[in-house]
Design a protein around this nucleic acid. Structure first.
Length: 305
DNA sequence: GGCCAGGCTAGCA
DNA sequence: TGCTAGCATGGC
C-alpha cells in the first residue's frame, strides 16, 4: 500500500465536483459522497490499480489523500501523483479569476454560487480526444453510455476489495486494432466509429505525436489536428480544455455553452456561434473557466438546483 | 411522437 | 467562402 497527500490551492469544492458529475457522468470513477471518497483505476507501472482519493480539509484548506492497494515503484508513485494533480487541477489558482469575475455583473453570481468548481481533466490526451469525438453531437448521457461500452469492449479492468470492477481507458493500440463493425454493434454511428479508429491508428503509427502538442500554442494545435477527418475546431478546443487544462479556450460551436450564455445573460434567443465568440471576447484570458461556470449554470438548472 | 443533444463532412452554389 | 442534408440514438 502507498499513501500520500496532495495539497490543492484553495478553494476546491468536492460538493461542486459531485454536482457536476451528476449531469456529466464519468463512468471510470465511483464516488462515495458520505466518506468524501472517489475511487478510480489508474495504470500504474503498466497495469491497472484501484486508487482511493479522499477529499479532506473543506473548501478553503483542500487536500486529497491518495491511497493505493498495491505498492507502486517510486517512478509509479511519482507519475500517479502528477496525474492526479493534473486531473483535479490542483495547482490552478482561482483567486485572480474570482477577482476578475467579481467585477462583472453577469459573472459575479456564478463565481459566488459555484465557488471552488474546477475542471476534472482527462488523464491523458489520447483519452481526451477519443472521449471528445464520442461526445460530438450526442447528449451527455448517451456519450457516457458509448464510452462505457468502449471500456467494456477493450479496456483493461481491475477489481477492488469490495468487488467493484474499474476500467482503465484502452490504449491506442487496443482501439487501433478494432474493426468499425465492432463499434457499430455498440450503437456508434458509422462515421464516429471510423473517426475514433482512424485516430487511434494515427497515434499508433506516430503520424500524430500527442506529446509534442503539449508545447504548442492553442491555435497551432487547432490547425494541426483539424487536418484529421472527424476532428473539427470544437473537438480540438475541448481537447485543449479537458485534456490539457489550457485556460483560454472558447468552444463557440458548443450547444450547451450557447444555451448557458442565453441563460446567464438573459438573452431572448440562443446566440449563434459568431455572437458567442463576440460575447466570449470579454472573458479573456479566462475563457475556458468562464465556459465551465456557464456550463455549470445549465447543469444546475437541469438539476433544478 | 417530435425535437434536441457539449459536431463534422461532403456536396453544392 | 457560405450553406445544408445526413448522420444514429437516447432522453424528455
Amino acid at each position: 500500500m502507498f499513501t500520500s497527500v496532495i495539497d490543492v490551492i484553495p478553494p476546491y469544492s468536492f460538493e461542486r465536483l459531485l454536482k457536476r458529475l451528476e449531469t456529466h457522468p464519468d463512468d471510470q470513477l465511483r464516488v462515495e459522497p458520505v466518506s468524501r471518497t472517489l475511487k478510480r483505476a489508474f495504470r500504474i507501472d503498466g497495469r491497472p490499480q484501484v486508487v482511493t482519493l479522499r477529499f479532506v480539509g473543506g473548501v478553503e484548506q483542500p487536500r486529497i489523500e491518495v491511497q493505493t492497494e498495491a505498492s507502486p515503484t517510486p517512478a509509479g508513485q511519482s507519475e500517479l501523483l502528477n496525474t492526479i494533480r493534473h486531473m483535479f487541477s490542483a495547482d490552478v489558482d482561482l483567486a485572480p479569476l474570482y477577482t476578475w469575475m467579481g467585477e462583472d455583473e453577469k459573472l459575479r453570481p456564478l463565481a459566488d454560487r459555484f465557488r471552488g468548481l474546477r475542471f476534472l481533466l482527462d488523464a491523458d490526451l489520447f483519452q481526451a480526444m477519443v472521449r471528445t469525438i464520442i461526445g460530438q453531437q450526442v447528449n451527455l448521457a448517451f456519450a457516457a453510455a458509448l464510452t462505457r461500452r468502449l471500456l467494456h469492449l477493450c479496456g483493461e479492468s481491475v477489481m477492488d476489495r469490495d468487488g467493484h470492477r474499474y476500467y482503465v481507458f484502452p490504449k491506442a493500440e487496443a482501439i487501433a486494432a478494432l474493426q468499425v463493425e465492432q463499434l457499430r454493434a455498440l450503437q456508434y454511428s458509422q462515421r464516429k466509429a471510423e473517426y475514433i479508429i482512424d485516430f487511434a491508428r494515427a497515434v499508433v503509427d506516430e503520424k500524430i505525436k500527442l506529446d509534442r502538442l503539449q508545447q504548442m500554442p492553442d491555435e497551432d494545435v487547432i490547425n494541426e489536428l483539424t487536418k484529421l477527418r472527424g476532428v473539427g475546431r470544437w473537438t480540438v478546443e475541448c481537447l485543449l480544455m479537458f485534456g490539457m487544462g489550457r485556460p483560454d479556450l472558447l468552444p463557440a460551436a458548443d450547444i450547451g455553452l450557447r444555451n448557458g450564455i442565453q441563460l446567464v445573460y438573459g438573452l431572448p434567443k440562443r446566440p449563434d456561434e459568431q455572437e458567442t465568440r463576440r460575447i466570449g471576447e470579454s472573458w479573456r484570458p479566462w475563457r475556458s473557466y468562464v465556459s465551465l461556470y456557464v456550463w455549470e449554470a445549465v447543469g444546475a438548472a437541469k438539476r433544478k438546483e
